Amino acid sequence: MIKKRLNTLLLILTISLSSFAQNLQPYLGCYRVSGDARLVLAENNIFYIVAYATFFQGNWHIENDKLILNPHNPEHFFELYGRYNPNIKGGYKIKFDGFSEEETFIGKDNSDAMQRVFNKNPNCFESAYLQHFNKESDVISFVDVVSENIRDYDRRNTYSFPINKYNDFIAVYNDPRHYNYEMIYPFPKTEKGIIVEDLEQFGKMKMTDKLRKEMDEIIKMGEKMKPKDTLYFNPAYRLFDEPSMNISRDYSFDRSKNAYVSKHNYEKDEELHPEKKQDAYHSKGILYQYDKIPPTKIEIKPFKIIEKSIFTANCAGDE
Score class of each variant (00 low, 15 high):
Arg5Cys: 11
Ser16His: 04
Ser18Gln: 02
Gln25Phe: 10
Leu28Phe: 13
Cys30Val: 15
Tyr31Asn: 08
Leu41Trp: 04
Glu43Asn: 07
Glu43Trp: 01
Asn45Met: 09
Tyr48Thr: 04
Ala51Arg: 14
Ala53Thr: 11
Gly58Arg: 06
Asn59Ala: 09
Trp60Val: 05
Glu63Leu: 10
Asp65Gly: 06
Ile68Tyr: 09
Ile68Cys: 04
Pro74Arg: 02
Phe78Glu: 01
Glu79Ala: 10
Leu80Tyr: 03
Tyr81Glu: 02
Ile94Gly: 01
Asp97Thr: 04
Thr104Leu: 00
Phe105Ser: 07
Asn110Lys: 14
Asp112Trp: 12
Gln115Trp: 00
Lys120Ala: 13
Pro122Arg: 05
Phe125Asn: 04
Phe133Gln: 13
Asp138Arg: 06
Ser141Asp: 10
Ser141Glu: 15
Asp144Pro: 00
Ile150Lys: 00
Tyr159Met: 01
Ser160Gly: 00
Pro162Leu: 00
Asn167Gly: 09
Asn167Ile: 01
Tyr173Phe: 14
Pro176Gly: 07
Tyr179Met: 05
Tyr181Gly: 03
Glu182Ala: 10
Pro188His: 03
Lys189His: 10
Glu191Met: 03
Val196Met: 08
Glu197Leu: 09
Glu200Asp: 11
Glu200Lys: 14
Glu200Met: 10
Asp209Phe: 07
Lys210Pro: 03
Met215Trp: 00
Ile218Asp: 09
Ile219Pro: 07
Pro227Arg: 03
Lys228Asp: 06
Thr230Ala: 05
Thr230Leu: 06
Ala236Trp: 00
Ala236Lys: 08
Arg238Phe: 06
Glu242Lys: 15
Pro243Met: 05
Ser244Tyr: 03
Ser248Tyr: 08
Asp250Ser: 09
Asp250Gly: 02
Tyr266Leu: 13
Lys276Phe: 07
Gly285Ile: 04
Asp291Leu: 14
Ile293His: 01
Ile298Asn: 03
Phe303Pro: 05
Lys308Cys: 04
Phe311Cys: 03
